[in-house]
């Protein structure tokens, strides 16, 4: 069983307990305009160009047999022509060109994740993220199953837009589900993200009914999700589904803008991370809605 991944982060300290290693799987069915990992959206690998590491030497243009590269002020990649042969990556004396996304077997992925097992301690472990981890659910389940065999704590970050059998496959091998609910209103959800959220909420309720350890998370995006009404609605809903629910608000992180520059795309979100005071305001809403376990960093 193989999967397509685009990153593996060690010493991940924000998603799940303890110290973790996080594997990023490629491909996502959602199209959130604020996506923090745009390089993971597409299901296929892609050539990634980072202008900051480019020396402008033109070696890559010369070596490309498909005429997919051209050099102006920066290198421009014609993705439709690129066959991902890797010649340009190899010849680049800097590290400006990189094929983003590679195929690995579940066994390789598990080995790389477990390389840091000495750091996992009592509550650390491995996390699958993305993209959307469940878009390659069979691969994801096998990776976590291999990790579980070694007694490692496992977690998955998911939007839950996936068939029920995918969720069922993950249940026995996943210790913690970190699930994203961005909007409660299905119409807004569809309007902003491109798909409605009924399957997401169904899967969420299923997980709760199965007694899974679930942490609901909402990214606070200025101009999008970060409104009192939206947060209150989500809080109220999840409180009804699960009286003991855990809820985490993820503060906006503007650092991903540089990734959009590299992709020659504009980042649609204006604004900055919320201040401590602003965050307290959101936490107050959760308290008012009776959320018992507010997860904070």
């Amino acid at each position: 069983m193989t999967g397509i991944i685009f990153d593996l982060k060690r010493f991940a300290v924000h998603d799940g307990g303890g110290l973790r290693s996080t594997l990023f799987l490629k491909g996502c069915p959602l199209h959130c305009p604020w996506c923090q990992n745009p390089e993971g959206m597409d299901h296929k690998p892609a050539l990634w160009y980072n202008p900051n590491d480019c020396l402008g030497c033109g070696s890559c243009v010369a070596v490309c047999t498909e005429q997919a590269l051209s050099l102006g002020e920066r290198v421009h990649v014609e993705h439709s022509k690129c066959t991902l042969c890797g010649k340009c990556e190899d010849v680049c004396p800097g590290s400006a060109l990189e094929r983003m996304g590679g195929t690995v077997t579940a066994k390789e992925a598990a080995e790389r994740l477990l390389r840091d097992s000495v750091f996992f301690g009592a509550d650390g472990g491995v996390t699958l993220s993305g993209g959307e981890a469940l878009s390659q659910w069979e691969f994801a389940a096998e990776v976590l199953s291999l990790c579980k065999e070694k007694g490692t704590d496992t977690a998955i970050e998911t939007c839950l837009l996936a068939p029920r059998k995918a969720v069922e496959a993950m249940l026995p091998v996943t210790d913690h589900f970190l699930i994203d609910i961005k909007y409660l209103d299905p119409i807004i959800h569809e309007k902003v993200i491109g798909v409605d959220n009924r399957q997401i909420l169904d899967n969420y309720e299923f997980l709760v009914s199965q007694g899974a350890d679930v942490i609901v998370r909402t990214p606070l995006i200025p101009g999008y999700t970060a409104t009192e009404e939206n947060i209150r609605n989500i809080a109220r809903y999840i409180r009804t589904v699960d009286a003991d629910t855990k809820y985490e608000l993820l503060n906006f992180n503007p650092l991903c803008r540089s990734k959009y520059t590299a992709l020659e795309r504009d980042y649609p979100v204006e604004g900055r991370a919320f201040s401590e005071e602003e965050m307290s305001g959101f936490y107050k809403i959760l308290q008012e809605e009776g959320i018992l376990h507010i997860i904070k960093e």
């Binding site: 982060k9 060690r10 010493f11 840091d116 750091f119």
Partner: peptide, 9 residues
């Protein structure tokens, strides 16, 4: 560039 755990390893 791989973070503190890789360095420590």
């Amino acid at each position: 560039g791989q973070g503190p755990t890789a360095l420590l390893q």
